[in-house]
């Protein structure tokens, strides 16, 4: 009998409709208006790569040890260096990072012994060309320039 009444008065459907209706309240709105409001990503977020420099002198921290290139599963990092005749130390000449093939696994970051290579919180990596995805040393040191939108 109870089941019959539930069927007649559509209790189960009304229950569901009442639940969805309760969520009409404006405090339950979850929409994020993306380019206007940028999400704050986590501190450990693995985004665009960056090659850190010494903030005082502007010299690169990279010691050209090539460990990141060896750790990378996709072999997308190319490091070249030359030996400085006076100090007898390896010095970084070029550093190429192909973000189009990168899967942001963070293995290069873990391998770096001097914390020079780092994956940062920047996540806007779109470019108009494929060549633009291949980052050279200058771009890695300065970081990407996010587009500013006017609203």
């Amino acid at each position: 009998m109870k089941k019959f009444l539930r069927t007649i008065f559509l209790v189960d459907l009304i229950q569901g409709l009442w639940l969805t209706f309760r969520y009409q309240h404006p405090k339950n709105i979850y929409t994020e208006e993306y380019p206007a409001q940028r999400p704050k990503v986590a501190e450990r977020y693995r985004g665009a790569p960056r090659l850190n420099t010494n903030p005082d002198t502007g010299e690169t921290l990279c010691i050209a040890c090539n460990l990141c290139a060896l750790a990378c599963p996709e072999h997308l990092i190319v490091v070249t260096s030359e030996r400085n005749e006076q100090t007898k130390r390896k010095e970084l000449t070029t550093f190429t990072y192909d973000t189009s093939r990168c899967m942001f696994c963070g293995l290069c970051e873990d391998a770096c012994p001097v914390d020079a290579l780092e994956l940062t919180q920047d996540f806007e990596l779109a470019t108009y060309t494929r060549e633009g995805q291949i980052w050279d040393r200058k771009m890695l040191e300065e970081g990407p320039r996010p587009t500013k939108y006017k609203f």
Binding site: G16, Y30, R44, Y45
Partner: peptide
């Protein structure tokens, strides 16, 4: 309807993942 609600709850889990290891989906 349930899709919107489940995605909202899943988002909280993904936030925990993001805070922990820095990625939401392919976490490593």
């Amino acid at each position: 309807t349930p899709l919107f609600y489940t995605m909202r709850e899943r988002e909280e889990i993904l936030k925990i993942f993001e805070n922990y290891c820095g990625a939401r989906l392919t976490t490593h």
